[in-house]
């Protein structure tokens, strides 16, 4: 799938927001794959870079709200790591827009939906 997006979400906030999204009747755009991790704190540079290198157009990470990580600071670490990768990518002449992380509360299905759509629009996957 050349024109694909990957959504990595954590088992807590991200998952609940995704469930709320689907229960409200919002659906993901086509070409979007999902992948669940126990905590966004597990995401590391290599994982993101290898995924992008394999032709995925963009990676969207949905974590828990700050201060609300079950593992204390997994989401904050992930946010910083993604900031680092974004900078690395833009330094390398690839636009940093291909990676994005946002945090969601359990009820923010609508916001998750619009965030994913915005992101899909930004990286050029419709």
């Amino acid at each position: 799938m050349e024109e694909s997006l990957l959504i990595i979400y954590c088992s807590e906030g991200g998952r609940k927001a995704l469930q709320k999204m689907s229960s409200e009747g919002f659906r993901l755009p086509s070409g979007v794959c999902t992948f669940e991790l126990p905590c966004t704190g597990r995401i590391n540079d290599v994982m993101l870079m290898e995924t992008l290198q394999n032709g995925v157009r963009g990676i969207f990470v949905a974590g828990c709200r700050e201060e609300n990580c079950k593992y204390l600071d997994g989401n904050k670490r992930a946010l910083r790591r993604i900031k680092r990768i974004k900078k690395l990518l833009s330094d390398a002449g690839i636009e940093g827009k291909h990676i994005e992380m946002q945090t969601f509360g359990p009820d923010e299905g609508k916001r998750l939906y619009s965030a994913i759509n915005d992101f899909a629009g930004k990286v050029g996957v419709s």
Binding site: Y71, D73, A78
Partner: peptide, 28 residues
């Protein structure tokens, strides 16, 4: 939580049942 596995510079720490290798391949 996997913070250690994510930060390990030598990739020496892997989560049982969620190893880096399987994650990369799973995503691939």
């Amino acid at each position: 939580c996997g913070s250690c596995a994510a930060e390990c510079p030598a990739e020496a720490i892997q989560l049982r049942n969620l190893t880096g290798e399987s994650l990369y391949q799973g995503i691939r």
